[in-house]
Each structure stands twice: as C-alpha cells, then as structure tokens.
Design a protein around this nucleic acid. Structure first.
Lengths: 234, 234
DNA sequence: ACCTGAACACCGTTCAAGT
DNA sequence: ACCTGAACACCGTTCAAGT
C-alpha cells in the first residue's frame, strides 16, 4: 500500500517502524514486540498486531521466531542484558553492587511490567543466568563460604523476582492509578473489614503503614534485610 | 444421562463429582476447578472442560462466578486458607512459626503449581492478606520496631512468592522430570557454554552446586538468611 | 431464577500457495 | 528462501431461548 523507495535510504541509521524495511529479522521482530509491550501492555502483543506493525503476514514471523514464548524470552533477555550491563562492571563494594543491581532490576521491571511477568514464568530462560550473575558475582569477593554462594544468590533472585512480579501484576491489573493514596486507602479499608482476631497483623498494617508506604523504598528495605542476613551468617 | 437418585443420598457427606448434584454453587464449581487444575494443570482448566465435568453448560458457570480470574483467586484462597490454618494457631517461637509457615506455603505451591502462578499474578487477591498475616504475625511478638514490621513481612512474602513462583513455573514447563540429575546436568552444560569472563559466578555454580542442589533445602536456606537479617537489624 | 448451548470476537499456530 | 494470509483448533464470555 505504501510505496517504498527501495534502497534509497540505506545509509540512514535510524529505524522507521512505520514503513516496511527490506527484510524481516529476529531483531526487528523482537524490537517491534518490545514497542508494543511497552506502549500497550502484554495483552496487546498478538501475532496479528505484530504482523500489522511489521507490514507482513502473521506466518512470516514464524520464520524467525519459534513461538510466542521464544519471542517473549528474547525480548526479556534484551531488556535484562541492558540493565545488567549498566549495573555490572564497576568495582564497587560488594554490598553496594548488589544493591545497585537489585534496584536496577526493580526499576526496569517497573518500567516494563511484562518483563516481571515473563521472568516469573520460565525459570531457565536466558535472562536468568544474567540475573544470577549480577546478584551473585559480588558474593565471590565477600567472605561467604563457597558452599553458601548459590543458596544466597538464589535467595536474592527469588526476592527480586517476587517483589518485581507483584509490582508488575499491580501495574497490569491497575494500569493507571492516578491517586495512589485513594487506591491504597481502598485496600486498607478492605483489610480492615477482616476479622481482627484472625488478622491482628493485617489490621495494624492497614491502619498505619500500608496507606503511606513506598514500593521502591520497601523493596530496598528488603534487599538490606537480606544483606544484613548475609553479614550475620558469615 | 446418568440417572439420579434424587435426595436419597442426602445424609452422605462425601462429594461425588461424577454425577450431577441437585444445584450448581460457587463451592462446587471451585472444587471441580481445583480437581482439574491438580490433575491436568493450568492449561486444562477451561470453561468448557469445567462445564463438562459439572454436566452443565459453559454459561451456567457465570451465574456463580464473575469470570476466570474470580474462579482462580477463589480456588487459590481455598488452598491458602487450609495451609495457613495448619501453620497458624500454635504458640511456637516466632522464628519457628515463620519457618513453618514459609515451608507450608512452599510445599502447598509445590503440590499445586497453579497456586504459585496465580499468586504472582494478582497482588491484592484475598489470599494475600492471609499470607502476609501468617508471615508477619509472629513479628509482633519479636522486638522488631513497629515501623519495620510491614517492610519485613512484605520482604518475607516477596521471597516466598518469588521462590514458589519459580518452582511452579518449573513444574509447568517440565511436568514430569523423572531424572533430576540429568535435567540439572543439561542446565549446567548450557551455563558452562556462556563466556567465563562475563559469567564467573555462573560457571562456579554450574560446576559445583547447581547439579546437586535441593530446591526445598535451598528455599529454607533463604528463609534462614532473612531471619538472620531480622535478628541482625534489631 | 437458573440453566442451556450456540454464537461472537478473539487467540497461537500451521500450511498450501505464491514470489 | 522467504513471505502471504486463509484456515484450523481452540479460547473466555455473552445472550436469546428455554424450564
């Protein structure tokens, strides 16, 4: 439909997703998928929507990507690789390196909720060793006994993926909460209706901390809790 | 199709899902859903399969359940309520109570992987306050300062849901791994092919700990790490 | 009021047919 | 070799029609 100037703009580096480029490739497909996921969320990524954006047929995508899970885990791996590249490399103090890596992952998943969903849905996808490395690597320079390193790194990863997954789910179910105070107030009210005898802790939390808590600060408090445990168990 | 002895077996308490009972109810629907989920996994639970098992039409289910998410979160809440009831109540030492609750949740999600998937997909469903209560309640009897209780309980929950979610995903992707050693050996081999300069920690883990680790023991090590952090930060 | 089941508006994936 | 897009085998959900 759209006339193409074939080969004319070869030297131009910028990518225009509006017009059909010369050839399909896994990279172009994955990048288009990421754009759809970031712009309109997980439910918007269908092979039909992706094919439309790439100005091709749905079946063509299968020549470069095995299936939807392959597409998603490749996209996740791309985002995680970027975060890890920023977090790693520096020769910061080990605890600080772990904090930075955990926070980088949290922020990335906050910005791309679909990453959190996918990470908690396939434990052996390519992004996992990256995450384990950036969280566990700094432990090698600590005095953690060799045998506890895997357990410790795995605990850090479970915590990060758990917190990030909850955050991602929240973003998915409540896409645009403008009034956070009102939203948390509703949850608190619901929790207050539970039996106080059965839920004493929930009642205290709903009354005091839940309505005013900050997700990022709470995440960081959890990281510090685990770091304190690492120090204590040495 | 199956002839029914109406009212005859009223006094009998046992539930027979093979025959159509007098009336549909949310409880009967949810119980049937749990049976399908446990027997054949998440992908087997469709409204058509559920309707067939209940000997009714697909639309009838919507008279008792709002939608599939309502059905799933009600099912999850039922399983979690059972686990929590077992774990809570006793006046065990706080750290021991937290350990027992965490392990109970881990085992329940190991037995019902779909629970792990659902829990990491909706942060405000009814089961969440139950989990937060059973993990956070014991903190009230510790000397944890009032203000850190929510952060600490939330960290415990994120860890438990993260670890359990990974475990559930693993069970979903690899339903019946008979030879665990061979399976872990394959992962280790894949990790060994990564660049040793970029993945020093992964290489050590793949060579030493990954092939022989036990998921439950590793989960418990993580709980103890967080408990040590709680003690250290007091 | 509750149930029935066909119909609707979608999915991911496949595959004969084109270039 | 790569692409096309109709077709297949499903979904969750709705709703007119029954009892």
């Amino acid at each position: 439909m759209v006339p193409m100037a074939t080969g004319v703009q070869r030297t131009q580096q910028t990518q225009r997703t509006e017009r059909r480029a010369d050839a399909l490739s896994k990279e172009r497909i994955v990048d288009a998928a990421i754009e759809i996921l970031d712009a309109d969320g997980e439910s918007a990524l269908t092979f039909r929507a992706l094919a439309a954006r790439l100005a091709t047929g749905a079946g063509a995508i299968y020549h470069h990507v095995a299936n939807k899970n392959d597409l998603l885990s490749t996209a996740v791996n791309e985002v995680v690789a970027e975060v890890v590249a920023e977090a790693a490399g520096g020769d910061a103090e080990p605890r600080e390196a772990i904090r930075a890596a955990a926070l980088g992952l949290f922020d990335a998943i906050d910005a791309h909720p679909w990453v959190g969903t996918q990470l908690s849905q396939d434990p052996w996808q390519p992004a996992i060793p990256r995450i384990l490395e950036v969280l566990g690597g700094p432990l090698l320079t600590l005095d953690v006994s060799r045998c506890a390193c895997f357990d410790t790194a795995s605990a850090l990863m479970s915590y990060v993926l758990g917190a990030a997954g909850q955050n991602a789910a929240n973003a998915r179910v409540h896409p645009h909460v403008t009034d956070r105070a009102a939203f948390l107030g509703e949850i608190a009210a619901r929790w207050t209706h539970l039996d106080p005898a059965e839920y004493p802790f929930i009642h205290q939390v709903a009354a005091v901390e839940l309505p005013v808590h900050d997700d990022r600060a709470q995440f960081l408090a959890g990281v510090d809790l685990i770091l304190a445990g690492i120090d204590a168990l040495q």
